[in-house]
Design a protein around this nucleic acid. Structure first.
Lengths: 233, 233
DNA sequence: CAAATGTAAATTGTCTACAATCCGTCGCTG
DNA sequence: CAGCGACGGATTGTAGACAATTTACATTTG
C-alpha cells in the first residue's frame, strides 16, 4: 500500500499488472488517508487526469471499490466516497472481530511456524516506526500484521470476505492512528496474540484478537464523527 | 420477483437500471444456473453480443462479479467462472450460517411485525411452487426468504457482506435444489424460524437458522463435486 | 517421432469520440 | 419580488477502433 505520488504511467508497471487494479489501489489509498473524504464526489475525468489514464479503467476501478463498500454509485450522478454511520462502525468492528477470530480458528490444524515468525517481525517493525513517529510506515506495519494472518488462510472465501471488511475499516483505522499516535496498546496485543499462536493456544489467540479489535470501537466512533465534521464544512 | 441482483445497496430505487448492473445480473443468473459452469471462460465479446451491449459495460459487470467472488480475472487471460474447493464450501456455509445469525441478532431491538408477515408469505409461495414442481419459482422464493431477513437489517455493512456471501453460495444452492427437489426440510425450518421470530425468541431463531444452513453442508459438497465433474469433461 | 519455433487468429487492454442525462443559472412572467 | 421554465455547462453512459499480448496450430529440426 504505497502512498507516494509516483508518475502515472511508469508506476503502472509496479504491483498490479493492469491499470484498473493499480487505480483501485491508488484511489483506495486516497480514501483511507482522507484525501478524498467521505461524501466527496469522485469524478471520472478528474481521476483519469490525475493518474494519467482514461475513463474506462477508472470506471472499472471505481466498480471494484464500490463492491468493496468504499464508494457509492448513483446512476447519472456519479461516484462518491461512502460515509459510515456510527451504527455501521459498530457493526463493522463486530464483524471484523468475529471474522478475524474465524481466521484464527481456521489455522488450528496448520503449521504456524512461518506465520508466527512473520508476525513477530511485523510487530517489531511497527514498534520501530512507532518510536520514530513515522505514521505511514507504522500504519503499513500494523495493517501488515493483520493481513499476514488473513493471507495465511487457505480458504479463498474467508480471504475474500475479510478483504471486504478490512477495506471498509482501513479509513477508520487510519483516522484513529492519526488522532493518537502512541501505538502502545496495539503492540502489546499483537505480541500477546503472536505468543499465543506460538504456543498453539488458538482459543486464547482468538479471544485476544477479538478483544484487541473491539477495544478500539468506542474511540473509533468518536474519532470518525469528529473527522467527518472537520471535512464536511 | 428478483432472484439475483448485483447492485450492492440498491440505492433506494431501482428504475435507472444501468447496463453494467443489468449485465451483472444476467451473467450472475447464468452462473448460478450453471449455464456458465465453473472454470468456463467468459469472453467479453461473446457476452457483449449475447446481451446486445458493448465491451465496456461487460467489463464493468465482470469487475462487479469478480469482487463478489463469482468470477476470477487473470490479466491478459480474461475472466472465468470461479470454482470452489470443498474447503471453500465448508467455510462458505460456516460463514453464511454465522452471519445470518448475526442478522437475526441485529433484529432484536426492532419491530419485526412486517418482517414476519413477509417471511410467512414467502414461505407459502415457496411451498406452493414446491408442490407444483416449478424449480425456478421455488428457488426464487427460497432465496427471497433469506433475503428478506438480510434486507431488514439497518446496517449497510452487514448487508454488503451478506450480499457477497450469498452471491457465492447461490450457485451451490441451485445445484442442490436441482438434484433433490423435495424442499420439505427447507419449508419446515423456515416455518419454525418465522414462528420463533413472531414470539421474539431471537436466540431460538438464530440457532434454527444456523442449524438450517449447516444441515445442507455435507450434501452441498457432494452435489457440487458431482456437478463439477459433469461439466469439466 | 518428439521438441522447438515461428506465424496467424483470437482475445484482452486501453483510448477517443459521441450521445444521453443532470444541475445550476439566467431570464421571463405573474 | 417570487416562482417557473428554458438554456448552457458539466458529467456520466455507451460504442467502436486500435494496440498489445496470448494461445493455438502448423512447420521445421534434431
Amino acid at each position: 500500500m504505497t502512498l507516494a505520488f509516483a508518475s502515472p504511467l511508469d508506476a503502472a508497471e509496479g504491483l498490479p499488472h493492469t491499470i484498473p487494479y493499480y487505480l483501485a489501489d491508488r484511489i483506495k489509498a486516497g480514501i483511507i488517508r482522507w484525501r478524498y473524504p467521505p461524501e466527496s464526489s469522485l469524478r471520472e475525468v478528474e481521476l483519469a487526469a490525475e493518474f494519467g489514464a482514461s475513463r474506462g479503467p477508472v470506471r472499472e476501478a471505481l466498480r471494484i471499490l464500490e463492491q468493496q463498500g468504499l464508494v457509492v454509485h448513483v446512476p447519472r450522478r456519479g461516484f462518491k466516497v461512502k460515509a459510515y454511520t456510527p451504527d455501521d462502525l459498530r457493526q463493522l468492528y463486530r464483524l471484523r472481530a468475529q471474522l478475524e477470530g474465524e481466521v484464527i480458528d481456521a489455522l488450528a490444524d496448520k503449521d504456524v511456524g512461518v506465520l508466527t515468525d512473520a508476525l513477530e517481525r511485523a510487530n517489531e517493525v511497527m514498534c520501530f516506526y512507532a518510536k520514530r513517529g513515522d505514521i505511514e510506515k507504522y500504519f503499513a506495519a500494523n495493517v501488515d500484521f493483520h493481513q499476514l494472518m488473513i493471507d495465511s488462510t487457505e480458504s479463498s472465501v474467508l480471504r475474500t470476505i475479510m478483504h471486504q471488511v478490512n477495506a471498509m475499516s482501513l479509513s477508520i483505522r487510519y483516522a484513529l492512528l492519526s488522532s493518537d499516535f502512541s501505538g502502545r496498546g496495539d503492540y502489546d496485543y499483537h505480541a500477546r496474540i503472536t505468543q499465543a499462536l506460538c504456543k498453539r493456544d488458538f482459543k486464547l489467540a482468538r479471544n485476544l484478537t477479538i478483544e484487541h479489535i473491539t477495544a478500539n470501537l468506542a474511540r473509533a466512533v468518536e474519532v470518525y464523527a469528529k473527522a467527518l465534521r472537520k471535512y464536511e464544512k
